[in-house]
């Protein structure tokens, strides 16, 4: 599955697109990403799965498209 990274999270992860496999849900995805990129723990962002913003742990199919969306303040 693909994880699309937006805004300042790209600076933490170092890219705006990553591929991951064998992840069953969004909680597991976040845990994995946080252990690889510790600065993510302090970042605020919303998760979308297949272009739908989710509010709780969500099962991920192998072809899911996940997006990590941080808030922007600039104007």
């Amino acid at each position: 599955m693909t994880v699309k990274i937006f805004g300042q999270l790209g600076d933490i992860i170092g890219t705006n697109l990553i591929q991951v496999n064998d992840i069953v849900n969004t909680t597991e995805l976040v845990t994995n990403l946080q252990s690889k990129y510790p600065a993510l723990k302090n970042a605020k962002y919303k998760i979308a799965v297949n272009r739908n913003i989710i509010q709780s742990n969500t099962t991920l199919q192998h072809d899911a498209e996940v997006a990590l969306l941080p808030p922007f303040s600039g104007g």
Partner: peptide, 17 residues
């Protein structure tokens, strides 16, 4: 979408970023 505000030092503004 974004339930509670981040602290201003958690996100860079235009002047900083």
């Amino acid at each position: 979408l974004f339930t509670a505000p981040p602290k201003e030092d958690e996100v860079l503004n235009c002047a900083e970023a």
